[in-house]
């Protein structure tokens, strides 16, 4: 009968991890401790991830107990632990998702800063690239002037075309 004490102990450990909840003799209601975590003020993404890691370790201890003692457990006991294990796993995976979603609040400032800097780098890149355009444009104007001075109609036409091309704008 020692294993019954062990089951009770594992259940107790899982219930204790939820601090404010009473588990008694039944499986913990799905989502209950998630509600608790979600409403806990100032809980950071990293902390929620660590809670999920710890919960997974404890939950897996329950699973391992079942795998190692399956031959000594009654069908009902086996089913009970299996269900409890499954429900705990469902909650644990939701905790990992919760941690990932919580990240948004923490990265908002960093995202804004990086976006501002990125915009500045793009603006500077364009500015430095424009120098070549200005050089080209000056050349085009000069070509036109030269063509006019030299009374070269063909040159005037090609210079105007060059001035109007999108690259030189």
């Amino acid at each position: 009968m020692a294993h019954r004490w062990k089951i009770a102990f594992v259940r107790y450990a899982i219930c204790e991890s939820k601090s404010t909840f009473t588990c008694e003799n039944k499986a913990v209601k799905k989502g209950s401790h998630l509600y608790y975590f979600k409403n806990m003020p100032n809980l950071k993404a990293q902390q929620v991830k660590e809670l999920a890691d710890n919960l997974l370790r404890m939950t897996n201890a329950l699973g391992d107990y079942r795998y190692e003692n399956s031959e000594h457990l009654s069908e009902n006991e086996n089913w009970q632990i299996k269900e409890l294990h499954r429900q705990q796993l469902e909650d644990t995976t939701e905790l990992y998702t919760l941690s990932a979603v919580l990240i948004m609040e923490e990265v908002e400032m960093s995202l804004q800063k990086i976006e501002t800097i990125t915009k500045e780098t793009i603006a500077l890149y364009k500015k430095l690239g424009t120098v070549q355009h200005v050089l080209d444009r000056a050349t085009s104007i000069l070509t036109l002037a030269t063509a006019i001075i030299g009374l070269n109609v063909k040159g005037i036409t090609s210079s105007i075309k060059s001035l109007l091309s999108p690259v030189s704008k």
Binding site: K49, L89, T92, Y96
Partner: peptide, 14 residues
């Protein structure tokens, strides 16, 4: 490496 890997660990256990 933390959360998504964690979810996959849960999937293995499930």
């Amino acid at each position: 490496e933390g959360n998504l890997t964690g979810k996959l660990n849960v999937q293995k256990s499930s």
